[in-house]
Amino acid sequence: MVGRRGFLTGGAAALAAPRLARAGAGIEVRDVLGNRVALPAPPERIVLLDATDLISMAALIAEPGARLAGWASVPRLDLGRADWLAPEGLPVVGKLSPDTVSAEGILALSPDLVVASAYMLPPGGSVLESVLRAAGIPLAWTGGHDRALPAGDKLDRAMGFWGAVLDRPQAARELAAWGRARFDAVRAATSGPRPRTYMEIMSTYDTCCWAAGHAFWGGIFEIAGGHLLEASDGWGAKLGPEGLIAFDPEVYIATGGSFAPELQPGIAPGLDPEQGREGLARAAARPALKDSTATRAGRVHGIWSGLATAPLMAPVLADCLGAWLHPETGAELDPGSTLAALNDRFASPLPGPLWLSLDAT
């Protein structure tokens, strides 16, 4: 397993991270959107509106669950296991969409910080945002949908924020520098034509077709040298089977998870890889994909949804994409080693499968 020093290899790039200012016991940080967030003291009762932030926290402190008062969108974390650094019975204040978040539930927990992503709380004057500000509860964002912001900068800002909030700034700088080094390595290894790529979000056996949007995934595909289906400038977009057939992807990448295995490929930490491959084959056999160039060429792959939703997992996803989209120039990319380096930071490592391929031996 790669040691912590591995995070510093090639990682001397400057970190444009949120700064931490101390005035007495108070701290001040900037979130990923550039908002200034003032806290009277280091937060001990945090509410996560996007549960995937637990992964960033877990890379910086050993018991992140001890700092949580509640959370929402727990299925988005989708770990496929019950023993990963979050206490049982943690209050849930929302499900998988912004309209399910309960302002009353959050207020009842008396948090000293609420942390959101643009997916779970679109910034810009929502009712929930107004309620929290009126109650004097600090609010910050760790994920945005800024298409123009490079993936490395997004990682810098997210980890810089958590490093400041959790008083682990040096560890956060190391992680962000490591991530930038991985992005640079993938970019350097992915030369040549950009293959037509269909990345499917919410892959299910009985529906088609949800295409990944550029605002969320475009940057990572730019690093990996892929031509993403022009479907959406946002999170994603629904298109008909005819549109996917006309696009004729050269590479198909599904997303899977641990919930609803009867509806989607079972790809998540701790699940059976063979069952995951069976699900991946079933997804690729749908009418809109079964005769595609990707399926006929055996270029069918699947990822755990957490690789796409958790910022800290993005370097692992970049390694996977680079190797899949450019198998000749990217042959030396090794997402397994990248995951091992990241796992060295977690008190409880994430087991596979986090990605699968139908052509794997």
Rank of each mutant, 00 (worst) to 15 (best):
P87F: 04
A59W: 04
R194A: 15
D206C: 04
L39P: 01
R168E: 15
L109P: 08
G125F: 08
D31K: 03
P150A: 01
T255R: 04
R36D: 10
S337K: 10
M57N: 01
T52V: 15
V186T: 14
D344Q: 15
H227Q: 13
A69G: 13
Y205N: 05
P349R: 02
R180T: 07
P315Q: 04
T9L: 14
G11Y: 05
I137A: 05
P98S: 00
L85H: 07
P122S: 11
S102R: 06
G243H: 05
G298V: 11
A118M: 10
P269W: 07
S56G: 15
L33I: 03
G306Q: 03
A288D: 15
P335K: 03
D53S: 14
R36N: 11
A25L: 05
L33S: 06
G243S: 09
D153C: 01
G336T: 09
I106P: 10
L271R: 15
T255L: 06
S357T: 12
T293P: 10
L79Y: 00
G179H: 09
A177Y: 02
C320I: 14
A341K: 00
P91C: 01
P351Y: 00
T293E: 07
P353E: 04
L325Q: 02
R282P: 09
L8H: 11
A284N: 11
V251G: 05
R147Y: 08
A176W: 08
G266D: 11
W217I: 01
T204I: 06
W178T: 01
F259W: 09
P138I: 10
A347V: 08
R286E: 03
A188P: 13
T100E: 06
A103F: 02
A16V: 12
P40C: 02
C320M: 06
I106D: 01
E332D: 15
S126N: 05
V131H: 06
V165Q: 06
D153A: 12
L239T: 05
H214Q: 09
A164P: 09
I245A: 13
C209M: 05
G10M: 05
E129K: 12
A69F: 14
I106Q: 08
G219V: 00
W324T: 08
N35H: 11
A177N: 04
D233K: 08
F161S: 06
P195D: 06
S126K: 07
H227F: 08
P87W: 01
E262T: 04
G192Q: 13
P195A: 08
G105L: 07
A66N: 14
A172Y: 10
T295V: 14
G70W: 00
P43R: 02
D291S: 11
L354M: 14
G336I: 02
A116T: 03
R282S: 08
A212P: 00
D233C: 00
F259L: 12
I46D: 07
D156Q: 12
A297S: 13
W71P: 09
R36L: 14
M313R: 08
D50T: 13
F216R: 13
G34V: 00
G11R: 14
R168K: 14
L307M: 09
A86G: 09
A181M: 05
L239E: 03
A148E: 13
R277W: 10
F183K: 11
G257P: 10
T142I: 10
